[in-house]
Simulated scan of single mutants.
Amino acid sequence: MEINSFFIYVLITYLIGSIPFGLIVGKIFGKDVRKEGSGNIGATNVTRVIGKKAGILVLLLDALKGFFPVYIAKYYFPSKYVSIIALTAVIGHCFSIYLKFKGGKGVATAFGVLLALSLKVALIVLTFWLGVFLTTGYVFLASVLSAGISWSVIYVLLDDIYYTFAGFFIAIIIIFKHKSNLDRFLEGKENRFIYK
């Protein structure tokens, strides 16, 4: 493996991760999701502003941004390099070069990363996410808590220190990006996500 190939791969991963699918899908429907709802470009806000089908489409596209770069990288790079690629995919989504280094909150892309690393890990974290969401009704709370446990699940099941550190730093990014939700929650102003 040439180190130049790795850096090129990382750059491509960042550029792919930076694609703001929520904004693109919103524009197709004649909406700028940054100016409506919560202002976020993620699937939750797209669902609120445009509808369920658009939200599912964005969810899938954002997840694939994390899945494919990591899944392919596993065949060509050792885990310490794959972990950097995993982190890069989420950074691209959260700090997009196309949006002046602003972006989404990284949850769907991070799930795509988990799915590429391990189906078992992804299913455990998804089950936990669903449990919190269905119990509380808060998407942000389910996302933050799931991110918080994900790295420990990676450590236990995969026993790879590089993947574990990647999961830990991804969790920090996701929690940081949800700071406004946490502030609203503490003030009693955060809305539960209820789709009718």
Rank of each mutant, 00 (worst) to 15 (best):
F67L: 15
F169H: 01
L158I: 05
G103E: 01
L59I: 03
G55Q: 11
G22R: 12
Y14L: 08
S146A: 14
L157A: 06
L117A: 08
I173H: 04
I172R: 08
L186V: 04
G17P: 02
Y9V: 06
P78N: 11
Y195R: 01
V82K: 06
F29K: 09
H93L: 11
F133R: 11
G92L: 03
D183I: 15
F101C: 06
I50Q: 08
I124N: 03
L134V: 01
F68K: 04
R48A: 08
V46W: 09
V139P: 00
L23Y: 12
D183S: 13
L15K: 05
F193E: 05
A54H: 07
N181P: 04
P69H: 08
F29D: 05
G39P: 10
K177M: 14
I12H: 01
N45A: 13
K53E: 10
G92E: 00
Y75D: 15
T13I: 10
L15A: 12
L157R: 09
A89K: 10
V33T: 00
Y9N: 07
F77R: 02
P20Q: 08
A108S: 15
N191G: 11
W151K: 10
F165C: 04
S150V: 04
F101Y: 10
I149V: 12
I174V: 11
R34W: 06
C94I: 02
H93D: 14
Y14A: 08
A54T: 01
V107I: 15
K196T: 00
A73C: 09
Y98N: 03
G51W: 04
F21R: 02
T88S: 10
I97Y: 04
Y98V: 02
I175Q: 08
G131W: 03
R192Y: 06
W129M: 04
K105W: 04
T136D: 02
A43K: 13
V132Q: 10
F67E: 04
P78S: 11
S143I: 05
I97C: 14
T44L: 14
K74A: 08
I19T: 00
V10N: 02
A73Y: 03
L64I: 10
L123Y: 05
N181K: 11
M1T: 00
A116N: 05
E187R: 15
P78W: 09
F128G: 02
E190C: 12
Y71T: 00
S96A: 11
L57F: 06
T109D: 06
F29Q: 05
K179L: 15
